[in-house]
Structures are given as structure tokens and as C-alpha cells.
């Protein structure tokens, strides 16, 4: 029986399906018997989802224009700048 610490150490690889089958199977069993680790796994997964959710949106259109203008002016002034 693997420990909770081992499960946490291997969690990222487990969720990405990168563990050898016998190790993944041990962790499946551990999760079936260990509610705290199941909660840990679920909240770890929620953490990565929340990270994605607060990511910044796309570049504002006015900034796109400003960047293009910046380089337009810069290259016009000093080609090869």
C-alpha cells in the first residue's frame, strides 16, 4: 500500500497518465480507500483549472496597433535598428 505522501509526489504524472500501469493501479487503489487523498486530487485538479481561468485575455486591439506603429516608426527612422 502506497502512502499519501507517495500519492501526492506522483500526482502530476498520475493525472497525465505517465506512470507505469502497476504504479497507477496502486494509486487507483489508494484513492479508492483514502478520502483525504481523493479530496487532495480533486482540489489539485481544481487548482490548475483556476490558474487557467484567471489567465489574461488576448492583447487589446489598441495595443496591437501601438506595437505595429512603434516598429513602423522605429524601422523607418533607423532601418536595421
Amino acid at each position: 500500500m502506497r502512502s499519501c505522501k507517495e500519492l501526492v509526489d506522483l500526482l502530476a504524472d498520475y493525472l497525465e497518465g505517465q506512470l507505469p500501469p502497476e504504479v497507477a493501479s496502486d494509486l487507483d487503489q489508494h484513492l479508492a480507500d483514502c478520502p483525504p487523498c481523493l479530496s487532495f486530487l480533486k482540489t489539485y485538479r481544481t487548482t490548475t483549472r483556476l490558474i487557467r481561468e484567471v489567465a489574461c485575455e488576448d492583447i487589446p486591439p489598441e495595443l496591437e496597433d501601438r506595437l505595429l506603429r512603434f516598429f513602423h516608426e522605429r524601422l523607418k527612422r533607423a532601418p536595421g535598428a
Binding site: S3, C4, K5, L38, S39, F40, K42, T43, T46
Partner: peptide, 14 residues
């Protein structure tokens, strides 16, 4: 012994 030292709450439901 490798067990969680503190209770682990499930706050994942979103």
C-alpha cells in the same frame, strides 16, 4: 508514516 498531517477538505466543487 506518510499520511496527511492535517485533514484535507474537498473544496473542488465549482
Amino acid at each position: 508514516d506518510g499520511h496527511h498531517a492535517r485533514p484535507v477538505a474537498d473544496w473542488s466543487e465549482v
